[in-house]
Amino acid sequence: MQGVVKVNSALNMRSGPGSNYGVIGTLRNNDKVEIIKEVDGWYEIRFNGKVGSASKSYITIVN
């Protein structure tokens, strides 16, 4: 499943599904990500070869 980031500035990509996990990357508006699965309001995603988590509130699913 594919998604597109929708933010005003930037979205942190984290090492796990929650804001208490470390930041491993930064996503910008309109970045395209691969959604692997949903976990507690977060998506596990793949972006630029990295796997991490980002809040699903800022990612829109595209077909």
Rank of each mutant, 00 (worst) to 15 (best):
M1A: 10
M1S: 10
M1T: 11
M1Y: 10
M1R: 12
Q2C: 15
Q2S: 11
Q2W: 15
G3V: 05
G3H: 02
G3E: 02
G3W: 06
G3C: 10
G3I: 05
V4G: 02
V4H: 05
V4S: 04
V4Y: 07
V4R: 09
V5W: 00
V5E: 02
V5H: 02
V5D: 01
V5P: 02
K6L: 08
K6C: 14
K6I: 11
K6F: 07
K6A: 08
K6D: 05
K6G: 05
V7H: 10
V7F: 06
V7Q: 03
V7I: 10
V7M: 04
N8C: 15
N8R: 13
N8V: 12
N8K: 15
N8H: 13
S9M: 11
S9W: 11
S9F: 13
A10E: 13
A10G: 10
A10F: 15
A10S: 14
L11S: 04
L11N: 02
L11C: 14
L11D: 00
N12A: 15
N12K: 14
N12E: 15
N12G: 11
M13A: 03
M13C: 09
M13Q: 01
M13P: 00
R14F: 14
R14N: 03
R14S: 04
R14K: 04
S15L: 08
S15G: 07
G16E: 02
P17M: 05
P17H: 04
P17N: 06
P17R: 04
P17G: 04
P17W: 03
P17Y: 03
P17I: 03
G18P: 02
G18Y: 01
G18E: 03
G18N: 05
G18R: 00
G18W: 00
S19R: 13
S19V: 14
S19W: 15
S19M: 15
S19E: 15
N20H: 14
N20Q: 14
N20R: 11
Y21C: 09
Y21R: 03
Y21D: 03
G22T: 13
G22K: 14
G22M: 13
G22E: 15
G22Y: 08
V23E: 04
V23S: 06
V23C: 08
V23Y: 05
I24Q: 02
I24W: 01
I24K: 02
I24P: 01
I24T: 06
G25H: 08
G25S: 07
G25V: 08
G25D: 12
G25F: 08
G25Q: 08
T26Q: 12
T26L: 13
T26H: 10
T26P: 04
L27W: 01
L27E: 00
L27H: 00
L27T: 00
L27Q: 00
L27N: 00
R28M: 12
R28H: 13
R28E: 09
N29A: 09
N29V: 07
N29P: 10
N29Y: 09
N30V: 02
N30R: 08
N30I: 03
N30G: 15
N30Y: 08
D31Y: 06
D31S: 07
K32A: 10
K32I: 15
K32Q: 12
K32Y: 12
K32C: 13
K32H: 11
K32G: 05
V33E: 01
V33M: 04
V33T: 01
V33G: 01
V33P: 01
V33S: 01
V33N: 01
V33Y: 04
E34R: 06
E34K: 06
E34H: 10
E34Q: 10
E34A: 08
E34M: 10
I35Y: 01
I35E: 00
I35K: 00
I35L: 04
I35A: 00
I36H: 03
I36M: 10
I36G: 02
I36P: 01
I36W: 05
K37F: 09
K37Y: 08
K37R: 14
K37G: 15
E38M: 07
E38R: 04
E38W: 06
E38A: 07
E38Q: 07
E38P: 01
E38Y: 06
V39H: 11
V39I: 12
V39R: 07
V39K: 08
V39L: 10
D40F: 09
D40E: 11
D40M: 09
D40S: 09
D40R: 09
D40P: 06
D40G: 12
D40Q: 09
G41E: 09
G41A: 06
G41F: 05
G41I: 04
G41P: 01
W42A: 01
W42M: 02
W42K: 00
W42F: 07
W42P: 00
Y43V: 04
Y43M: 04
Y43K: 00
Y43I: 03
Y43A: 01
Y43H: 00
E44P: 00
E44I: 15
E44V: 15
E44T: 12
E44D: 06
E44M: 15
E44A: 06
I45N: 00
I45M: 03
I45Q: 00
I45L: 08
R46Y: 11
R46L: 12
R46D: 04
F47V: 09
F47S: 04
F47T: 03
F47L: 05
N48A: 11
N48F: 08
N48V: 05
N48K: 12
N48G: 10
N48L: 10
G49I: 04
G49T: 04
G49Y: 05
G49M: 06
K50T: 12
K50S: 09
K50I: 14
K50P: 02
V51C: 09
V51P: 05
V51A: 07
V51Q: 10
G52K: 01
G52Y: 06
S53H: 15
S53R: 05
S53G: 08
S53I: 10
S53T: 10
A54L: 10
A54E: 02
A54Q: 02
A54V: 15
A54M: 07
S55T: 08
S55D: 15
S55N: 14
S55C: 15
K56F: 05
K56P: 04
K56V: 10
K56G: 06
K56L: 06
K56T: 10
K56I: 09
K56R: 08
K56M: 11
S57D: 14
S57V: 13
S57L: 14
S57K: 15
S57E: 15
Y58E: 09
Y58F: 13
Y58A: 12
I59S: 00
I59D: 01
I59Q: 00
T60Q: 14
T60P: 06
T60N: 11
T60R: 12
T60A: 11
T60F: 14
T60H: 14
T60V: 14
T60C: 14
I61S: 04
I61D: 03
I61G: 03
I61E: 04
I61A: 06
V62C: 13
V62M: 11
V62Y: 09
V62L: 13
V62T: 11
N63T: 13
